[in-house]
């Protein structure tokens, strides 16, 4: 398992899919460990009832079917697929609607899905997913990207209420690929995957949705920021170490 995770740290993130299926076939005995520890790019299905698209993941899967958050039905149909309790389903519907607005404000497009289920210790787990195709043939408003994919997975474990407070444990992963391509500068492609955790004890007075929403918003901004500043920055630094841009620096940065 350690070696498998070592490989996933090195293989180009845009090949995650292929790498994961290769590992699954080499290590059939570790398939559940692999599926839970390696995040894979999100897939989408269309809900036949509402005509809306929803995102597939391990958390809305039962056997070979996936539950849509819009109609609460499994695709393809499944007789006795597990469903959240009526109370949790209500929260799931509300969260799906609000999260869709949140997603639209930050992503200007994309698809989002929210899934919730009861866990063993009187709390529940919620999974918020966002998938955005930012390429110029997809939903890239500005049309710069030949290829542009952003997949975000947020899983929040919500603990039982204790004296008006609840523990929230958020695990988030962002996977992205962005490629620009043109005649004069060739293809330029960055791809990446990072995962972070955040724990918070919050008052339930504001409601679970408000607490979870704020945590996700803060986390997404942090992840986006560290990808932009730290991770992309480090690869840029590497290029400059390989070939220091002496003339370029003088030409391009007029400041002081």
């Amino acid at each position: 398992m350690e070696a498998a995770m070592g490989l996933m740290r090195r293989i180009p993130p845009k090949h995650t899919d292929t790498a994961l299926s290769a590992l699954l076939s080499l290590m059939p005995n570790h398939s559940s460990d692999l599926l839970s520890q390696v995040d894979q790019p999100l897939q989408v299905l269309c809900d036949v009832d509402s005509g809306k698209e929803f995102i597939l993941c391990e958390y809305n899967r039962d056997a070979d079917s996936y539950r849509s958050p819009w109609s609460n039905k499994y695709h393809p149909p499944l007789e006795d697929g597990s469903l959240p309790s009526a109370e949790l389903r209500k929260l799931e519907i509300e969260a799906s609607d609000i999260f869709a607005i949140y997603r639209d404000q930050y992503y200007e497009g994309g698809i989002s899905s929210v899934y919730m289920w009861e866990d063993d210790n009187e709390g529940f787990v919620a999974c918020f997913l966002i998938k955005k195709d930012g390429s110029k043939t997809g939903q890239g408003r500005r049309g710069y990207l030949e290829e542009g994919a952003w997949d975000a997975i947020h899983v929040i474990e919500v603990g039982p209420e204790e004296e008006e407070n609840t523990n929230y444990r958020l695990t988030s992963t962002v996977m992205l690929t962005l490629t620009t391509s043109n005649e004069s500068s060739g293809t330029f492609s960055l791809s990446g995957s990072i995962r972070r955790q955040m724990n918070m004890k919050l008052s339930v007075a504001d409601g679970h949705l408000c607490n979870m929403g704020r945590m996700i918003e803060e986390m997404e901004s942090k992840l986006r920021n560290s990808l932009d500043q730290v991770y992309f920055g480090k690869t840029r630094e590497m290029v400059c170490t390989l070939r220091p841009p002496a003339e370029v620096a003088q030409m391009r940065i007029p400041e002081s």
Binding site: Y106, D228, V239
Partner: peptide, 23 residues
């Protein structure tokens, strides 16, 4: 070519990356 790579990096925050997710 090096200058064009630099330019690609410089246009990330405000144009290319924004098409994935806004700040």
């Amino acid at each position: 070519y090096l200058a064009s790579i630099e330019a690609s990096y410089l246009s990330l925050p405000d144009s290319t990356f924004k098409d994935l997710r806004r700040k």
